[in-house]
Design a protein around this nucleic acid. Structure first.
Lengths: 193, 193
DNA sequence: ATTAACCTGTGACTATAGTCACATAATCTG
DNA sequence: CAGATTATGTGACTATAGTCACAGGTTAAT
């Protein structure tokens, strides 16, 4: 499989994970190619997969009164999903869409749960995924609760430089919760200092 | 124990939970009284407990350049903790402090983990707690990513009315990320419509 | 009951961000 | 490569939020 080596390394970065567990996991996995603007998840659907990203990137967003508000970007070697919908079986409130051609490895929920019942390691992996996701979301929440637009940009520069390298200014502005004109002016102010 | 009935009901609202599991859980539990301004958790400490709130309420906050920024309020029949620190063993970046006299039931991490190894139900409870917490944090994140100050106030009115009933305007303002003067003016604007 | 501490509302001014309009630059597509 | 589309930068103006100052109200403690 294309992303095999990376995927095993990624899983091992979360929790101890043996070759045997990896073999056990195979039936839950499926490699998939996506074109730009293909949906990984649509609002109103139930999220029944985790997507491990082998290549390309995607974003999560809400559409409110016709306006698109980005809420996250997901790159190579990360998991994209909606944990709330995945965990609870409720409908997703947001979309996830490919921003480029992508290669992903899909973890099918039902099969994953079956395997977790048989394997302590796969079960622990699930918990680690949730905890990792919750930690990231919590960090992002404090960024929005505590920081101004300019400080939020600085957070991206320091902690998520990948976003600024690969995502257009207007898309980043939507993510940071400011208008693109404002973000452009913040950058200008910072240049002149 | 004072909060016994409520606690069992609370646990059962998360996951199926038998009397036997509850008995098994007892050694991890400790009831504790707190006075106003007692700390449940201090910045720099590792969070080694979950606090189930029997009576009273508390808040989580950061102190940045001498200014206090509230990030959450926790009331009766809820769990207060820092999942990130509790899960990872890292130092907490924020404080949790009693806003009134409180009665809490403390879940000791080490003992809880021991018991979880022996009991499927206790283990499932742990996962439910994390998922519930992650879901709440994610919802709050979207409120801050998507909504204006006025819309954030409306979110509190609709989804978290308890906060507005029991917490002072200036404390709520700090939580919503606006100055108390601004929140006062938003309220006035809304009154006159 | 009286002082002190805290909370709330409001005016006047400043600072920051949004809106609208337009010019130019970069990228995509046939 | 040419036209179309998308992205960015900027000016002028408006709207929203922050700052500072102060007054009156509420609450708590001795």
């Amino acid at each position: 499989m294309l992303g095999e080596k990376n995927l095993l390394n990624f899983l091992r970065s979360l929790t101890s994970f043996s070759e045997e567990s990896y073999a056990l996991l195979q039936p839950a996995l499926e490699e998939r190619e996506l074109k730009k603007n293909d949906f990984l998840l649509k609002e109103g659907e139930v999220c029944s997969s985790l997507f491990y990203i082998v290549d390309g990137y995607c974003k999560s967003y809400y559409e409110i009164d016709g306006e698109i508000k980005n809420t996250g970007f997901f790159f190579e070697n990360e998991i994209a999903t909606n944990i709330q919908s995945f965990g609870s079986g409720e409908k997703s409130k947001f979309n996830i869409i490919a921003c480029e051609t992508m290669t992903v490895v899909l973890f099918a929920k039902e099969k994953l749960f079956e395997i977790a019942k048989q394997s302590q390691e796969v079960e622990a992996l699930g918990r680690s995924c949730i905890r990792l996701y919750a930690t990231k979301q919590e960090e992002l929440l404090t960024v929005f609760q505590l920081y101004s637009a300019q400080e939020r940009l600085e957070y991206l520069e320091n902690k998520r430089p990948e976003i600024l390298k690969r995502v257009s200014l207007s898309q980043v502005a939507s993510f940071l919760g400011v208008k693109r004109e404002t973000l452009s002016r913040i950058r200008r102010r910072r240049m002149s200092r």
